[in-house]
Design a protein around this nucleic acid. Structure first.
Lengths: 329, 329
DNA sequence: CTGTTAGCGCGTTCAC
DNA sequence: GTGAACGCGCTAACAG
């Protein structure tokens, strides 16, 4: 393994010059630069990252801590982050906190140990509640989950608005008793719950909210119980995420109920299956890729301008009306 | 940031003793160990990874290079790898090669630069064709994609067998003209193609194979063209992956064809939507999580026993017969 | 514009 | 069982 000294010797220059060329710093003559590049190629030299990091105390690595890697939403976000990172020759460490604050803390400490250049995080509720960017030795941007009291760079959907529009759509379609299944363990779930409540309040309707852990399995079990016990059935159910929506549809099958005839349905996340099933399902689509892209761009900006003013990107969900939300003629 | 010297001073011992305690090496008295641990806690000391790596030339980081991060199959694999890595306090760098050999090479070089302890890779075809484990300075295990000529630790499905069983099932269900849509750019696609051909040959039937890039969008477009041009239509179409299957179903919608009445359908990957759509779709389910788990276990074993004999884990797909594959009564 | 040199923080001899 | 000292490969400060 060739070292920087070997390159210097081969090129007949000092290690400092080699270092400068490699770092793309000014103050090197074209001839020197040329010779160095030639020697680098000749020797197949690759800088030792460990040494570089030890010395410079900096890294080209970003951390991405998502709360559920199985959620297609986060996959899409990850892909966007990956794409931009690759284009900029940045490494990214993807971690799955799995909605577990302990895992989340562990990974955050790992990021500290790794001396990462920055982190993109979708925080759990406890984490968000005590979040202060000053607690971390690296820039951080929040994605998907944030609230108005937390001062942090963030990229989020306008969840209250989206849930409100979705619920209103149901109301306008003639539904009265509208239930809401949501993940109470995240800021996003809570905000969508708020939007749901607001829409109901505006119409003088009373809520039937059901909190649960935001997984397909949990939603399926909870929904099954709900559907078997709740008499009379509500007119409609809204799911606060694509995963919950999926569990809900499975539960409907399990108990032999049909939508929208027996009960109307709507939810979040425009996953492929929501338009493939019959009847197709009304959802709010999130600009997932765009959210990931915005997050890493925000992070890169923050890394370059640490003192920059806090920025928040709020994106709007798109209501896609399909057949599941309205009674059939 | 406390350094090892600070701990040594605080504990009234030498840095060497601290290092020994931290590494869990023998040759340290219990009292010294005790004092060191206490000081570590008191100072909140965390070893500097960059320094440790520079000195030891080793890393606790694994690389995971998947060929398509959007494919639920690889998500599940990633999750398994994540889980095991977390349990063993290993870091993992997840990279998305996106079926692009250049990206793949870039990430492999990055792994070398990072001095990772090992890599899990789902190789592109060109990569697999020239693959020699000796070309890489780290242990590597292949996942999802491998062939019998390559000598490498690997975890794969028995693709030929699975495709054969799937195709035979179609034949037994009375289908005669059976088309096959597959990703020719991967070993997996090719092997499934082989299985398909074998099953047809066994029944004296002739193949209608269609190679394509293995994405939903591509499959949708190709299938749409195929369905509009191909007259008469085949009796059935088999998709070599979940993504292709999805595009196929969308194309069927696009051109207003119904399955299994107009054309039967079957494919790979037991994704949630395949049982949610009506009619539900016949598939071969892959033990995805298990494949990821096996891959990282293989890698860990190889890291600990570099000279161990090459091992290959071949898993069997599970045929799940649903309504899409048989003509309705 | 170029070269010399002093560490970055740790692991690991080798003495004691 | 313990400590002193060297060096992993590189960057940055400084001198020229």
């Amino acid at each position: 393994m060739a070292r920087i000294q070997d390159v210097a010797k081969h090129a007949g220059v000092s290690v400092a010059s080699v270092s400068r060329v490699l770092a793309g710093l000014p103050g090197v003559s074209d001839t020197t630069r040329e010779r160095v590049m030639r020697s680098v190629d000749a020797l197949g030299y690759r800088p030792d990252l460990a040494a570089r990091r030890l010395r410079s105390r900096r890294t080209d690595t970003l951390g991405l801590i998502v709360s559920d890697i199985r959620n297609p939403f986060f996959m899409e976000v990850s892909r966007a982050v990956e794409d931009v990172a690759y284009a900029n020759r940045l490494r990214v460490m993807l971690c799955n906190a799995d909605e577990d604050p302990d895992k989340e803390s562990f990974y955050l400490e790992m990021m500290r140990d790794e001396n990462v250049a920055g982190v993109i995080l979708s925080p759990t509720l406890p984490m968000l509640a005590r979040y202060k960017s000053a607690d971390y030795p690296f820039p951080m941007v929040l994605v998907d989950r944030c609230n108005s009291t937390v001062e942090a760079d963030a990229v989020v959907l306008d969840n209250v608005d989206a849930a409100m529009r979705l619920t209103r759509h149901l109301i306008e379609a003639g539904q009265r008793k509208i239930a809401f299944f949501y993940g109470a363990g995240s800021a996003t779930g809570q905000q969508r719950h708020d939007g749901y409540l607001a829409a109901l309040a505006g119409a003088g309707l009373s809520p039937i909210a059901q909190a649960l852990r935001p997984t397909v399995e949990e939603a399926r079990v909870v929904a099954r119980n709900f559907l078997e016990r709740q008499k009379p059935l509500p007119d409609a159910i809204v799911a606060s995420s694509g995963l919950i929506l999926l569990g809900l549809v499975e539960a409907l099958r399990d108990v032999g109920l049909r939508y929208p005839d027996d009960i109307a349905l709507a939810g979040f996340d425009d996953m492929p299956w929501t338009r493939l099933v019959t009847p197709a399902i009304t959802v709010v689509a999130q600009p997932t890729y765009e959210m990931g892209r915005a997050a890493i761009e925000l992070l890169r900006a923050r890394i370059q301008q640490p003192e920059q003013v806090v920025r928040r990107v709020v994106l709007r969900g798109e209501l896609i009306v399909r057949e599941s939300s309205s009674p059939r003629k």
